[in-house]
Design a protein around this nucleic acid. Structure first.
Lengths: 255, 255
DNA sequence: TTCCAATCCCCCATTTATGGCGGGGTGATC
DNA sequence: GATCACCCCGCCATAAATGGGGGATTGGAA
């Protein structure tokens, strides 16, 4: 890691305001000599927080169009463990192509590299580097800076979480073993009667567990409770998705 | 990062067997001159895979005692985002103290530093460095190697996932926009009537979407479909969606 | 000791979800 | 111009989930 980047990160560590994040990301963009650098959280309710070098026009456009739900970068990172080059994402859908066209029109570069970051309780954030150049140049860049970018992503997330304590509350009492069992079976598609049979208890008892779990998770109904349990990592269902190995089509974002 | 560590990681990247992971972790332990280094990932079903330098006796003891469920390192890392020094964990419970005593008796050092790592669908792994020394020495060590350890943790995780036999590739047809919308609202806890109202369509039409999505996802019922959509990253729902909607806030970015 | 969480069981009732049947329209693609 | 995916709506019925009560025992923590 170059000393310039080191210094920026050290400044960032000493900072305790959102402006510090913004200052750091601007400095990092210049240090790496790329077009854009962005860190942001995403959520179902919309973008909660972000800092970066995208234009206001693009940020507003993104929010207004609810691009969060079709952005292949978000969707791709959400199913992946590892950092990913934008070329490896799935740009095949029509909405994705429209999104890409709009993004390029708003000054984004054709190349991108995004690092997904996760925390407890289903927290999800992304750190993205965006640039306009040819494939070979970009490949060289990501190859040589991959490690630094992973670290930087973590530093940003650490700082952002420090500045947003109410982002991590999720008091989320832990579920009891039987509750976990019940929620897991429900997430696997078993009906209540089947779950009760599998757990060798009466359906009424099972109901008590489901209601208890629903209460602990602050959920409105069973589906909501299962969704939250999944999102918070309280239950693990269905074989690990090896999204990174999947054969997804690649886009031609290169010049 | 020292060149010795660089070389070990490069060797690791070229490796494609579990033995490669073990070789790398042994080499890293020697390179950092610590007592133990361990990478393992855990799941609801128990420890699935791990490699490291703990003695067989301790590993077997750990598994036999089901220490996974009381190990303060696991429990602490599971609720944290950041790497953590073992001293900062909660060792107050009786079971935790028993665990610690047993661990020390099996040759573990008194100092530890663990990096939690997360992936989609609640996947969780940890990379741990363990050593026997005094507090000041350990603080100096973690201070100077923190960044490297984070990176190493990610490299191990990446490699370990590559070596995992991928079960259920989940070809998963994509959902239509309206189907995504419906599943998302259901995952947020809205009942069918509310979803239909929100989407401004009749409840019967909504039913058609849900059934269509259920078919595409191969799900038995709505809860199952939502669980699968979540697990496959087809919908993006944050853990606490409803509460967040009131405090929706977006940072302004400048370029 | 007292208290509380976790584990089990049963009744009543209503609301909600699902299964099955039918009918439209658009727009893109072949 | 045929086909298909997507979008929209109606009715009927039954199966399932939920809301509201009422209990029990165990073991651990305060």
């Amino acid at each position: 890691m170059t000393s310039a980047v080191e210094h920026i990160l050290e400044d960032l560590e000493r900072s305790d305001t959102r402006e510090g994040l913004q200052t750091a990301i601007l400095a990092l963009r210049d240090a790496f000599d790329v077009d854009h650098m962005v860190y942001h959280w995403v959520s179902a309710a919309g973008e909660q927080y972000g800092c970066g070098t995208y234009s206001d026009a693009w940020v507003n456009r993104y929010l207004a169009q609810d691009y969060l739900r079709i952005d292949p970068v978000v969707l791709g990172c959400f199913q992946r463990f590892h950092p990913v080059d934008w070329k490896r994402l799935d740009w095949s859908s029509k909405s994705a192509r429209l999104f890409l066209h709009d993004a390029l029109a708003h000054g984004l570069g054709n190349q991108g590299f995004s690092v997904p970051i996760r925390g407890p309780n289903g927290q999800f954030a992304m750190f993205t580097v965006n640039h306009r150049c040819d494939d070979a140049t970009w490949a060289a860049f990501t190859d040589s800076h991959r490690r630094e970018l992973i670290l930087i992503a973590h530093y940003f997330n650490e700082k952002a979480l420090d500045l947003e304590p109410d982002r991590t509350p999720a008091p989320s009492q832990p579920l009891s073993p039987r509750e976990v069992e019940a929620m897991t079976l429900l997430a696997m598609g078993y009906a209540r009667a089947q779950v009760a049979d599998t757990m060798a208890i009466s359906e009424h008892t099972l109901r008590a567990y489901i209601e208890s779990a629903r209460f602990k998770l602050g959920a409105m109904n069973t589906t909501h409770a299962v969704a939250r349990a999944l999102a918070r990592g309280l239950i693990v269902v269905e074989g690990a998705s090896r999204a990174d190995m999947s054969t997804q089509r690649t886009a031609r974002t290169a010049s």
